[in-house]
Write a protein that binds this DNA or RNA. Structure first.
Length: 465
RNA sequence: GGCGGCGUACCCAAGUGGCUAAGGGAGAGGUCUGCAAAACCUUUAUGCAGCGGUUCGAAUCCGCUCGCCGCCUCCA
């Protein structure tokens, strides 16, 4: 079955058919590195990660590019205020971004270009646009004239006539022919860092980098472009205008946008005091994978209300999956998989793929995983499982986890000597009815995050996530 | 002013015309245990914001009402 994706360009669900049958080229708008990336940004990056991983799951080779915006108004003013160069200022946040991505198990895109390293490509693009009559110059800056591109507004549905403009227009935009015209190259001001160019000394407009870098690495027409909904207008609309204006070819076939995150029912903002970075959650003791699951488990086109209770709930759900994997590790009897187990695995697998194929219905996909957990647990309790069953179940789990990547499939140091010795000592104490000593050991391990489970088959231990 | 989304159990959340309304969390009961905890199982919506309509049949389609949120301006 083909993957179906909601394409903002057509406002409908479409079968996903890449330009090359076995290969997907995709571009996602990356972070502006002027601050630590917040959990709302990560909601978008995680949805993109799920998409990319599911494409790989479907067997596609993937080339994924994500830009790093390291030149932009806030960066320039913050860097100046701290007396740093742009690169010294941004590098810290860029490094932090990569750390956070690792913690959240967001796969690193194949190509992560920095805007400041692609000024030449951006200038080439402006030159092409100039040759084709899409630009004009005012007060040292070069603008894109949207009236020269008749498809303008096709993605967002925004009307180009001036009367439909609502709200205020920036003062320094008064000189534009149309308030919706956007800057390609900003003329030099004050002591800002700047670059020489055929359009005068200056720096690139924000929209320019994504067009220049995506086409450089993915071609003039490529498969998927993602971002948060807020980018539909004007950013992505402008990207289309710049790219198609310059090449005369379709820029992107599928535009896929993720809904925003709100916090405790309100828009996340610093003034409301509900603005969180991953670091804030780690400081409060939450596991990054719990955030990953929470952010993955709501459909990407539905607004997600972040709460701390939600993170805890996700953490418990991961624990349930990990506990299940521990139990599967205890299956010892050799033998071929039974028909019952095979049926359960097939059902789960079909359910998982049908859900993901349906515009990445992650909630339903996870339901398939947990339904299997319950059914196999029941069989496990009746002692009916052998190694074939286990391998079949784990095979499914492993595959599903290539997409979600929240469960612990590593056989972690179960032979951890110190812990095993303590458990043995405790069981001896229990045998001698020395419950004071046995409880002491139990409490001590508990404090280290290790939970003991006394059951029929003896004592099992696990680490809490 | 324009455009759009959402409202399903105590919480999160699938389901968008027809079998018993997924799944997770929490609570309750049970199994296990020295006691616990943990784990596992069972269980919890005659009901899908409200009111009307279409239909043999609606959470699902249509209309109105109420409530929440977003975009149109830098923004994931």
């Amino acid at each position: 079955m083909p993957l179906r994706l909601y394409n903002t360009l057509s406002n409908t669900l479409e079968d996903f058919i890449p330009i090359h049958s076995d290969e997907v080229k995709m571009y996602t708008c990356g972070p502006t590195v002027y601050h630590y990336v917040h959990i709302g940004n990560f909601r978008t990056f995680i949805f993109q990660d799920i998409l990319r991983r599911y494409l790989v799951y479907k067997g596609y080779r993937i080339t994924h590019a994500m830009n790093i915006t390291d030149v932009e108004d806030k960066i320039i003013s913050n860097a100046r205020a701290q007396g740093l160069s742009i690169s010294d200022y941004t590098r810290k946040y860029e490094d932090a971004f990569f750390e956070d991505m690792n913690a959240l198990r967001i796969q690193r895109p194949e190509i992560m270009p920095r805007a400041t390293e692609h000024i030449d490509e951006m200038l080439d693009l402006v030159s092409s646009l100039q040759e084709k009559g899409h630009t004009y110059e005012r007060e040292g800056s070069t603008y894109f004239r949207i009236s020269s591109f008749d498809q303008y507004g096709r993605l967002s549905g925004v009307q180009v006539d001036e009367e439909s403009t609502f709200g205020q227009v920036d003062e320094d935009e008064y000189s534009k022919e149309n308030p919706r015209d956007f800057v390609l190259w900003k003329g030099h001001r004050d002591e800002e860092e700047s670059w020489d160019s055929p359009f005068g000394e200056g720096r690139p407009g924000w929209h320019l980098e994504c067009s220049a870098m995506s086409m450089k690495y993915l071609g003039e027409t490529f498969d998927i472009h993602c971002g948060g909904v807020d980018l539909v207008f004007p950013h992505h609309e402008n990207e289309i205008a710049q790219s198609e204006g310059a090449t005369g070819k379709p820029f992107v076939n599928y535009w896929v946008h993720g809904a925003h995150l709100i916090v405790e029912g309100q828009k996340m903002s610093k003034s409301l005091g509900n603005f969180y970075t991953l670091r804030d959650l780690l400081d409060k003791g939450y596991n990054p994978l719990a955030l990953r699951l929470l952010l993955s488990s709501v459909h990407y086109r539905k607004q997600l209300n972040f709460t701390f209770d939600g993170v805890s709930q996700a953490q418990s759900a991961i624990q349930r999956g990990n506990d299940f994997l521990l139990r599967m590790g205890e299956v010892t009897e050799d033998g071929p998989a039974s028909a019952v187990v095979e049926r359960i695995v097939e059902k789960a697998s079909a359910g998982f793929e049908a859900a993901m194929d349906d515009d990445l219905n992650t909630s339903a996909a996870l339901a398939s995983v947990f339904e299997l957990v319950r059914e196999i647990n029941t069989l496990f309790d009746s002692q009916n499982l052998n190694s074939g069953d286990r391998d079949s179940v784990l095979g499914f789990f492993k595959k599903a986890n290539t997409v979600f990547d929240v469960f612990n499939l590593e056989k972690e140091a179960l032979e951890d000597q110190e812990i095993l010795e303590l458990i043995e000592e405790r069981n001896k104490a229990r045998g001698n009815k020395d419950f004071k000593r046995s409880d002491e050991i139990r409490d001590m391990l508990q404090k280290k995050g290790i939970v003991l489970e006394d059951g029929k088959e003896g004592t099992r231990w696990k680490r809490r996530i």
